[in-house]
Write a protein that binds this DNA or RNA. Structure first.
Lengths: 248, 248
DNA sequence: TCCCGTTTTTGATCTTGATCAAAGCACTCG
DNA sequence: CGAGTGCTTTGATCAAGATCAAAAACGGGA
């Protein structure tokens, strides 16, 4: 959690919210043109399944607006979200035939899509794109592994606090504000979806949210609008290191 | 868990147990020579820490022999393993300055190492290597996300069964035997390390192992030598899909 | 405005796995 | 051979979170 993901906000890619711009901030103009000519947009409504695990993959792309979730379901219905896709996040699997997980629109979502095959050709012919994509994938891997610590070892309260902190921080980055002091944002997930993400039941999520509210660590206006009066206070409840990340 | 990882055994790379051979099975001979001239070996004893989270990274490489673990520790001592590195697995972060997690030798381990900087140059100049590394990283990401399902939603019994099934299958791949019927192998982890990997306590691990033994799903000879009389039987306890993985 | 369906909150109880505690085993070393 | 040490197993109890069950709050039409 120490290292901010290499998204839009810390990459030199102007105002374009599309992740491939980030890819292309290091590209030659020619390559940018190639990508521009390939792209198309598609929108999905909240709750819609964008693609099922096992589906044949035709596209890769990135989230422009809204929030999508990667999710896995067991035969008996137990579900676990394995990734949140926020604006500027890459979606898809260059080099793979089928989707490994379900992709679900958590809110209304707009994607920017490219046909997979020409994109793969671009990767294979353009080392800068391939290595940029590698960096992004490594970041995702680190994030997944941080989440494993949360799922395996954190208490319900710590899980909720960590989740709120992540959303708040991510939101601050998008708005180019500091992640400190008083922060406000809209929760992109229902209690049910939060439970799926955190490895809890929705009742436990609700109870812990109520507890944090009771203790003044968060304020709830309606169900989705959150205010964190003091970000540092909330961070104390996450179980994470508070110091900025050891030596160096 | 449906898709076998692209390791040694299903890549055309002869008998060399080193992962970069796998990378190089698609390379030109020149590139192979470059890699050969860069490599060196280093061994670590069981229990030794190979590198700490935050350490400055000098090398990348791969596991030749033994088992290493990626691990995270919270201030109060709670620990979560976030990855197992088996022979042929890649270790390191091209494009990153510091290690994101601790790397610990679970057994005696031999690594094959390259200096990071020239390796990064090779990536940037050689699209085949970059895109191969991308594929490997995406595989790791999928594996991490499967593990998130295990950590977030599976019962203790399912966790143990899943772990044993993974080790057994991975072992079978290395020995070029089918992952079915009667299978024998040596557990690479102590009960304590298993607990760290599965998000359990060592007592719970021990109890569940005893239960599986009592029910005849596994046989224990000593503490580490395991026999699975019927792999399919054990798979029934993992909570995973039994069918070979939907359409396609 | 009032209804109706959905989402969320709250309450009561139960279960799984954690915690605390004590043996049991296998190995090494003196 | 026997004590010591580091795993591992087993037992007894506890508690966090799940489950079952209602009630409350919200939101969006008609």
């Amino acid at each position: 959690m120490n290292t901010a993901p290499r998204t839009l906000a810390n990459t030199d890619c102007g105002d374009c919210p599309i992740r491939y711009r980030a890819v292309c901030s290091r590209c030659e103009p020619d390559e940018l043109d190639i990508l521009d000519s390939m792209k198309s947009y598609k929108t999905y409504e909240a709750g819609q399944t964008i693609c099922w695990a096992g589906d044949h993959l035709q596209y890769v792309g990135s989230v422009v607006e809204g929030v999508a979730a990667l999710s896995q379901t067991m035969e008996d219905g137990r579900r676990q979200m394995v990734g949140l896709l926020l604006p500027s996040d890459f979606v898809g699997r260059p080099g793979r035939e089928t989707a490994p997980f379900d992709v679900i629109a958590a809110t209304d979502v707009t994607l920017c899509l490219f046909h997979k095959t020409p994109f793969e050709e671009l990767i294979n012919s353009t080392p800068t794109i391939a290595s940029r994509l590698l960096e992004m994938t490594l970041d995702e891997l680190d994030a997944a592994r941080e989440w494993m610590l949360l799922l395996g070892r954190k208490t319900a309260r710590e899980k909720i606090a960590s989740f709120l902190a992540i959303i708040a921080r991510r939101n601050a980055v998008l708005q180019r504000k500091p992640a400190a002091g008083r922060m406000e944002f809209i929760l992109p997930l229902s209690r049910d979806a939060m439970a799926d993400y955190l490895g809890l039941t929705l009742e436990t999520v609700s109870r812990q949210m109520s507890a944090l509210k009771r203790e003044g660590l968060i304020e709830l206006h309606g169900k989705r609008q959150i205010t964190i009066p003091d970000f540092a206070m909330l961070m104390n409840e996450t179980g994470d290191d508070t110091d900025g990340g050891m030596l160096s």
